[in-house]
Amino acid sequence: MNSTTLNIANRFCGPPNSGNGGYVCGLVANHMQQPSQVTLHAPPPLDTDLQIHPKGDGLELKLGEQLLASARPYTFDLDIPAPPSLQEAEQAQERFIGFGQHNLPGCFVCGPSREAGDGLRIFTGSVCDHQGQVAAVWTPAEDLCDADGLVASEFLWAALDCPGYFAVQPVSGPALLGRFSARIEQPVRAGEALIVSAWAISHDGRKHNAGSALYRSNGERVAHAEATWISLKR
């Protein structure tokens, strides 16, 4: 693969001046053409031409000489708990802690200050009778689709990202995405109500592992992911 240019539009921010981690990982993974894990090394700036370079059997995302992200071939085997029902997910999102306090209210995925049709507005809250699980409902809009009318994979990666944070947040506190890998199992079309679910897997010092998944309203899984979140130094 020759070097290619990647530009993250301002709309797809996580923190105010850098790309949403899951979205950026999804864009980078698109260039791997095989199952992969993406590691974020530095905040990827917005509206800036970045370069993707091949590196061994993977690739690197750079701004000049600065390494922003790297990808490597990777497959994972995730122990996935039973999903909540659509009704449980609808009720869970009413308990989204970000409504009261949100460190990144403008995040493309989970920011409550983003308008409908602009941000994804995925507000995962705790699920009753599913200990340690958070959930919400997400209906993808048509402007997220590719030329085939299917929701582009980078938006599915994004939707799987922030829920994992809210699953580990009670232990992690403020944290940023470190590593991420997602597997898209079935195509998704705009206008389809999806159940978003996430759960904590393990905690080790400042590292926190989470799983997340997307389901159709009947409980059929369409995608899942695993993530490592890194607590910010206090």
Rank of each mutant, 00 (worst) to 15 (best):
A200Y: 07
V127S: 09
Y215K: 05
N209Q: 12
V188W: 02
L144T: 06
N209K: 13
L214C: 03
P16Y: 02
A147V: 13
K55F: 03
I80Y: 05
A152Y: 03
A92S: 15
E60S: 13
T139A: 13
L27F: 04
S181Q: 04
L59V: 00
L27A: 06
D204M: 14
E142K: 13
K207G: 07
S172F: 12
A42H: 00
N2Q: 15
L214Q: 06
H224R: 08
L46V: 01
A29G: 11
R189C: 12
L214T: 04
D204K: 15
T124H: 09
E115I: 08
R179Y: 00
Q51W: 03
V196Y: 01
N103D: 11
T139V: 08
Q91F: 09
F123N: 13
V171C: 13
T4L: 09
V168R: 12
A141G: 14
T124I: 07
S85K: 10
A29Q: 07
G100M: 10
H203L: 08
R234V: 11
G64M: 00
A213Y: 00
A136R: 07
Q91V: 11
F166D: 01
G191I: 01
H208C: 10
L46N: 01
G58A: 02
I52Y: 01
A223N: 01
L160M: 08
L46R: 00
T5E: 14
G205T: 01
A175V: 10
L67Q: 00
M32N: 01
P35F: 01
A89P: 10
Q91K: 12
G149D: 05
I201P: 15
I195K: 05
R206A: 14
E60K: 08
A135T: 10
L63W: 06
S113Y: 06
F96E: 14
Y74G: 06
L150T: 06
S212N: 07
P170D: 09
E142C: 06
V109M: 12
A210S: 12
E192G: 06
R189D: 11
V24M: 02
L176R: 12
D143F: 07
L78V: 08
I97P: 15
V109W: 06
L176P: 10
A223S: 09
G173R: 11
Q133T: 15
I8R: 00
W157V: 02
C110Q: 15
P16L: 03
W138H: 12
Q66L: 12
D77H: 11
A141V: 10
A29W: 04
S212F: 05
P174S: 15
